Computed example of a mutant assay.
Amino acid sequence: MAHSHAHAIARIRKSTAETRDLQSGAMDVDASGTEARLEQTVRELQARVNEQQAILEQLRRSSQVNVQQAAYASEDPREKLKQLRAVKEAYTSLTPTVPLLPSIDSVLPALIAARTLQQNVQGSKQAITTTEAQITSAEALLRHEEAHLHDADLIQKALRDRTARLEAQIEDRSQKAPAQLAKELIAAKRAHKKGYDDEMQRLGDALNDFIDNYLSAMLAAEELGGPVVGDMLNVENETLAAGFTKKGKAKATKKPVSEKTRQRRIDHIWGNQAAIEEEDPLTEAEAADAEMRELVGVLFKTLIGPGGGRAYHHLKRDSAASRFLVRAKIAQFHPRDAQKLRLIDFGRELDD
Rank of each mutant, 00 (worst) to 15 (best):
S93P: 02
Y91I: 08
L100E: 10
S103W: 02
R78C: 00
K125N: 10
A71G: 13
L81I: 00
Q126E: 13
E89F: 06
D105W: 07
A110T: 03
L101D: 01
Q118A: 12
A71T: 04
A127V: 07
S124T: 14
T116D: 09
L117I: 05
V121M: 12
I104P: 08
P102L: 00
L100M: 06
T95H: 14
V121A: 14
T97E: 15
Q126A: 15
V107S: 01
A110I: 04
V87I: 14
P96F: 09
A114V: 07
Y91A: 09
V121T: 10
R115P: 06
L84N: 08
S124V: 05
Y91G: 09
Y72A: 09
L81A: 12
S93H: 13
E75Y: 04
Q118L: 11
A127L: 08
Y91L: 12
N120L: 11
A110H: 11
A73D: 15
I104S: 15
S103Q: 11
V98S: 09
T92G: 14
S106N: 00
Y72W: 07
S124D: 14
E75D: 05
L84C: 10
K125V: 13
K125A: 10
Q122R: 15
A90V: 08
D76S: 02
R115L: 12
I112L: 09
V107K: 01
L94K: 08
Q122K: 12
Q126M: 10
L111Y: 09
G123E: 15
K88R: 10
L111W: 08
K88C: 01
R115Q: 14
A110L: 05
I112V: 13
I104Y: 03
P96Q: 10
T92N: 12
Q119W: 03
P102A: 10
K80A: 06
Q83L: 08
A110P: 03
L111P: 00
S124P: 04
Q126G: 11
P99L: 05
L94D: 11
L101V: 01
P99V: 01
L100S: 11
S93I: 04
L100F: 14
S106V: 01
P77M: 01
V107A: 00
G123A: 15
R85A: 13
K88F: 02
P96G: 06
L81Y: 10
K125P: 02
K88P: 00
